[in-house]
């Protein structure tokens, strides 16, 4: 597996309460990056939506020599991207990707952010517009530990869904089945799927045993 590049330490946190990092810069790990990198052709042009501190782009730059840009709204994450030397465009991806020309990227990545966006349909549509292929990863709500907790009468709290119901940024959780149905309805053709459980590939009963789901898709022709 490719070595995770050494990124600059995160900037000191601001004391005025503006120091909330996006969820993903905390819980994205090396196997997730590697899974995405395997799908990305060397030298490709990549857009990372909700890029956090830019670590995925650093990883793809070092592992696949990509020409990458990130989109990020949070001030401290933007600063971290500057420190990590990755291109970042500060903007709210919920309001669309107007800065980006149609078909101008090889891949647009939405890594562990899908479940936290408001305008899911709009964002998938924009991904398909600006890029040849889309790559998304998200925590599988259908994972058996989540199901058990719901059965026991509680909202699930797990490694990939580490929040309590009242403080979670994850407002659009879904299962593998849900996402695949969504793609069918929204003109996205799934090219490849990979389901992981803490760095291990899951092939048996993925919607039950998989913690994290990765999809590569394109516009239905």
């Amino acid at each position: 597996m490719t070595q995770l590049p050494i990124t600059q330490p995160l900037p000191e946190q601001y004391s005025d309460g503006t120091d909330e990092f996006a969820a993903r810069s905390q819980n994205v790990s090396r196997p997730d990056f590697a899974a995405i990198a395997e799908w990305v052709k060397p030298g490709a042009k990549v857009l990372d939506l909700g890029c956090g501190d830019g670590s995925l782009l650093c990883f793809l730059r070092d592992a696949r020599n990509v020409h990458g840009y990130g989109v990020e709204i949070d001030d401290l994450n933007v600063l971290a991207c500057f420190s990590n030397g990755v291109n970042v465009i500060q903007s709210d991806l919920e309001s669309g990707l107007q800065s980006f020309e149609s078909g101008s990227f090889d891949y647009v990545v939405l890594s562990q952010t899908l479940q936290a966006v408001k305008h899911t349909e709009g964002i998938i549509k924009e991904m398909l517009r600006v890029s040849k292929e889309g790559i998304v990863s998200f925590p599988n709500f259908g994972y058996w530990k989540n199901r058990l907790q719901v059965m026991a009468g509680h909202m699930p709290v797990s490694e990939t869904l580490p929040y309590q119901w009242f403080d979670t940024p994850n407002i659009h959780n879904c299962t593998l089945g849900d996402f695949e149905e969504f793609c069918r309805q929204h003109g996205a053709r799934i090219l490849e799927r990979r389901v992981m459980n803490g760095g291990r590939l899951v092939t048996l009963l993925p919607n039950l045993l998989g913690m994290l789901a990765f999809y590569r898709f394109e516009q239905q022709k």
């Binding site: 042009k45 020409h67 840009y69 001030d75 933007v78 991207c81 500057f82 291109n87 970042v88 465009i89 500060q90 903007s91 107007q98 800065s99 980006f100 020309e101 101008s104």
Partner: peptide
Amino acid sequence: SRAIVRALLDNELNVSYAEIT
């Protein structure tokens, strides 16, 4: 500024953009 950024992106130039509150 965003108009400048768009033109730079169209040319695949390295660009970072910050909008400061």
